[in-house]
């Protein structure tokens, strides 16, 4: 009896591959883009501090304020108005108000904007308690504006008094 070996037949995809790719793309468009995260942003205001860096490089006594904003989606820029508050005669007062500033995010880190140029000159000698505050908005890449506001928290004494110009 002749031995018949069944011919193997290769599995043919029943659904054309292009159709599968199309389905995946449609799924991405419907569920991927539709479910982009809701924008959430935060502002971090560091406590105003005496800048030994400014003294080293510019030979000036100054109180510095560092501010960072972060979002879970890319931002185009952050715009803030910031100030250093002080306690004087048991009352809160503005020690220095900075110009309203806008800073664009970098291509490499589009979620973050850092303000590092905020400083006010001071005279060493007397202790003054300072706190930093800022208010503004973040302009997100897709066009929405996200309001932000914050403070560095409790007042901390620094041995340098900001002088009015």
């Amino acid at each position: 009896m002749p031995l018949t070996i069944p011919r193997p037949f290769p599995l043919q995809p029943r659904i054309p591959s292009l159709f599968v790719i199309g389905l995946l793309a449609a799924q991405y468009l419907v569920f991927g883009l539709g479910n982009s995260p809701e924008p959430k942003c935060s502002i971090n205001i560091e406590r105003p501090h005496y800048s030994s860096y400014l003294y080293e490089y510019k030979k000036i006594d100054a109180i510095k304020l560092n501010i960072t904003t972060k979002c879970n989606v890319p931002q185009r820029y952050t715009e803030i108005t910031s100030s250093i508050q002080k306690i004087e005669n048991n009352r809160q007062a503005t020690a220095h108000k900075f110009e309203s500033d806008r800073r664009y995010s970098k291509t490499k880190s589009p979620h973050v904007v850092i303000f590092e140029e905020l400083y006010a000159t001071c005279v060493k000698g007397s202790n003054v308690a300072y706190s930093g505050e800022a208010k503004g908005y973040i302009h997100l890449k897709h066009g929405q504006d996200y309001p932000i506001q914050g403070s560095s928290g409790k007042f901390v004494a620094v041995s340098c008094k900001i002088v009015a110009k």
């Binding site: 490089y57 510019k58 108005t81 110009e99 309203s100 500033d101 664009y104 995010s105």
Partner: peptide, 25 residues
């Protein structure tokens, strides 16, 4: 001589030719 930060392009919001610069808007 002074080291520079690399933290994105920064500008004052109100340009100097706008009187709003002097009143901060």
């Amino acid at each position: 001589l002074n080291p520079q930060s690399d933290s994105g392009f920064g500008i004052n919001v109100y340009p100097y030719y706008d009187l709003n610069y002097y009143s901060d808007g």
